[in-house]
Amino acid sequence: MIICSIQLIFFCIKRQLNRFNIEIVHESIETKPGNSLKSRLEESVGVIVSHCYQCGKCTAGCPLNEDMDIKPNQVLRMLQAELPGYEDKLLSSLSIWLCLACDTCYSRCPQEVKLSQVMDFLRQESVRQNKVNPKAKDILSFHKAFLETIEKNGKLNEVWLTLNYKLKTLNMIQDVQKAPSMFFKGKLNPIPSRIQHVKEMEKIFQRISENEGGDK
């Protein structure tokens, strides 16, 4: 059992090292008129930022409003204003990573602005432009660990995800005390379950990353 776990850890470290070669390529995008964050958002997601009339209902209902550095309505405000400096501030904010996509904002928005989709877009843009807020690193690491796990296995295995995440964040102690009891309750499968056609999964990831290269 223990040997098994150690092997697993080593395997993960190895994979992690390999991964450095294919880290997401960061790039800087110049802000030109017509190529503003707002116009790219409107084009790719279809959310029209000017629909927001700043009533603040989104922020009022947001479960994490207190923890956000830029409140949900202010995120839209900054997109609307298109003033110099706003884009950087937005892309390096913590808020865009704190959004849980619970959709409380959208469900009550009088103007039906799909804010969670705006947040998704800003997250992706923040990664692309290498502007991720340092405080959001754990969240990003988790998302990355998650996607890597399913790219390799087709489905999630919580042990793998956890180990992968721990390697990324070097936060080894967290939740260690939970592992034994989870294991004995049969909730942890140390042997990663995989889908039959794992290759298909890798291909999907590959095609999408190629297509995005083509879009640029």
Partner: peptide, 15 residues
């Protein structure tokens, strides 16, 4: 296979 959960929509729309 996995639905992608919040990781996928956070990092890659197409995915």
């Amino acid at each position: 296979s996995c639905c992608g959960a919040s990781a996928a929509h956070s990092l890659n729309h197409d995915l």
